[in-house]
Computed example of a mutant assay.
Amino acid sequence: MKKGLESITEIIGWLQIVISPTIIGTGLGFIFYSNFENMTGLILGIIISLIGFIIGIVLANKKYKTTGTVNFLSRISATPEIEAESEIKNKK
């Protein structure tokens, strides 16, 4: 049971890591298409979006294989300033 729950959280973490560069690539692709509203702009906008998606997959796979996606995401969202402040209060 534990292995199944770990797999589910790793998959969710993997998806979260993939989504960030994908959204950035899609935004840049849309901005590019907005400036060049023709077939070339559309194709280049789609290519930029796909590059963001591919970068997201590569980054997520790299983190999955090394430290794990959940560990990576938890370190990003950690607040060391608050933790350090609470440790100082606990020492007094």
Rank of each mutant, 00 (worst) to 15 (best):
A84E: 13
A78T: 02
I8A: 15
S49M: 13
S77C: 06
S20L: 10
V70Y: 10
S77I: 09
G29P: 01
T40M: 10
K91C: 03
W14E: 00
F30G: 08
T66F: 02
F32D: 06
I47E: 09
K65F: 05
I88P: 00
I23R: 13
F36C: 10
P80D: 06
G13F: 02
I54S: 14
E87G: 08
A78M: 10
V18C: 09
L50H: 04
N38Q: 06
L44A: 07
L15M: 12
W14A: 10
K3R: 13
I88Y: 05
T67E: 15
E10Q: 12
N38P: 02
P21L: 03
S77R: 13
I43E: 09
P21V: 00
N38M: 04
K89H: 04
Y64K: 15
N71M: 05
K3V: 07
E83Q: 14
F30P: 00
P21M: 07
A78V: 00
T67C: 08
F72C: 04
G4N: 13
K63F: 01
S34H: 13
K91E: 02
G41P: 01
L5S: 12
I57Q: 09
S86T: 09
K63D: 00
N71F: 06
I43K: 15
T26S: 08
K3H: 03
S74G: 04
E6P: 02
K65E: 05
K89S: 11
L44T: 07
K89W: 00
T26N: 04
T69R: 09
I24V: 12
S49L: 01
L5T: 03
G68F: 10
E87S: 15
I48L: 15
K65C: 00
G4P: 00
K3M: 06
A84M: 12
T79S: 14
V70Q: 14
E87F: 11
E10F: 03
E10I: 03
F53Q: 14
L50T: 06
K63M: 07
I12F: 03
V70D: 06
N71L: 06
T79N: 15
S49Q: 09
T9F: 05
N61K: 14
I51M: 04
I48N: 07
I82Q: 11
I82H: 13
T66A: 12
F30V: 04
I88R: 15
G4H: 12
L15G: 09
Y33F: 08
K92W: 04
E6V: 03
G13N: 03
G45M: 04
E37Y: 12
E6W: 12
Y64G: 06
M39G: 04
T9R: 11
K62C: 01
S74N: 15
G25D: 03
S86I: 11
L5N: 13
L5R: 12
G56V: 01
I76G: 11
L42V: 04
L50M: 10
Q16N: 10
T9H: 05
I82M: 06
I23C: 07
I31L: 13
G25R: 03
L42R: 14
S49C: 08
S86Y: 06
T66S: 14
I57T: 07
L73Q: 08
K89F: 03
A60F: 01
G68D: 01
T40I: 03
